[in-house]
Computed example of a mutant assay.
Amino acid sequence: MPGFTCGLDATLRVISGKWKPLILYFLAQGGPTRYGELRRSVRDVSDKMLIQQLKELEADGMVKRTDYKEVPPRVDYSLTPLGVSLAGALVPLCTWGTENMAEVARVFAQREAWNGRAR
Rank of each mutant, 00 (worst) to 15 (best):
Ala118Leu: 09
Thr33Leu: 06
Lys18Ser: 10
Glu56Lys: 02
Ala118Tyr: 01
Cys94Arg: 15
Gly31Ala: 10
Val42Phe: 03
Pro2Asp: 08
Leu12Ile: 15
Ala10Asn: 14
Glu56Ile: 06
Gly30Gln: 11
Arg65Leu: 07
Leu57Tyr: 01
Thr95Asp: 11
Met1Asn: 09
Val104Tyr: 02
Tyr25Phe: 09
Pro81Ala: 09
Gln29Cys: 12
Leu22Thr: 00
Asp60Lys: 14
Arg39Leu: 15
Arg34Ala: 04
Thr5Ile: 11
Ala10Val: 13
Pro92Tyr: 15
Gly83Tyr: 04
Leu90Trp: 02
Asp47Arg: 12
Tyr77Ile: 03
Gln52Phe: 13
Leu54Tyr: 05
Leu27Ala: 01
Val45Met: 02
Ser46Trp: 06
Lys69Glu: 11
Met49Thr: 12
Asn115Val: 01
Gly116Ala: 06
Glu99Asp: 15
Leu8Arg: 13
Asp47Leu: 14
Val45Lys: 02
Gly97His: 03
Val104Trp: 02
Val91Asn: 08
Arg43Lys: 09
Thr11Glu: 04
Gly97Asp: 01
Val45Ile: 07
Glu56Cys: 03
Asp60His: 12
Gly7Tyr: 09
Leu82Asn: 10
Gly36Ser: 01
Ala59Ile: 05
Arg65Ser: 02
Met101Gly: 08
Pro92Asp: 05
Lys18Glu: 08
Ala105Trp: 05
Ala118Trp: 03
Met49Asn: 08
Leu27Ile: 06
Met1Phe: 07
Glu70Arg: 10
Gly83Asp: 03
Gly30Trp: 05
Val42Ile: 10
Pro21Lys: 00
Arg13Lys: 15
Ala118Lys: 04
Glu112Ala: 04
Ile15Met: 07
Thr66Leu: 12
Val45Cys: 01
Ser16Arg: 15
Pro2Asn: 11
Ala59Asp: 10
Arg111His: 03
Arg13Val: 10
Trp114Ala: 09
Ala109Phe: 00
Asp44Asn: 11
Asp60Pro: 05
Thr66Tyr: 15
Val45Ala: 00
Pro81Leu: 09
Arg13Ser: 11
Cys6Asp: 11
Gly97Tyr: 01
Phe108Cys: 08
Thr66Met: 13
Ala87Pro: 03
Pro92His: 10
Trp96Asn: 10
Arg106Trp: 07
Glu99Tyr: 09
Ala109Leu: 00
Glu70His: 14
Arg65Asn: 06
Glu58Ser: 08
Ile23Glu: 02
Gly36Trp: 02
Asp9Trp: 14
Glu99Ser: 10
Val104Thr: 06
Ser85Tyr: 07
Thr33Met: 07
Tyr35Gln: 06
Arg65Thr: 07
Arg40Val: 08
Trp114Val: 05
Arg34Pro: 00
Trp96Gly: 10
Val45Phe: 02
Glu58Met: 06
Leu50Asn: 00
Val91Trp: 13
Arg117Lys: 04
Gly97Pro: 02
Trp114Gln: 00
Phe26Glu: 01
Pro32Val: 03
Ser16Cys: 14
Ala28Gly: 07
Thr98Tyr: 14
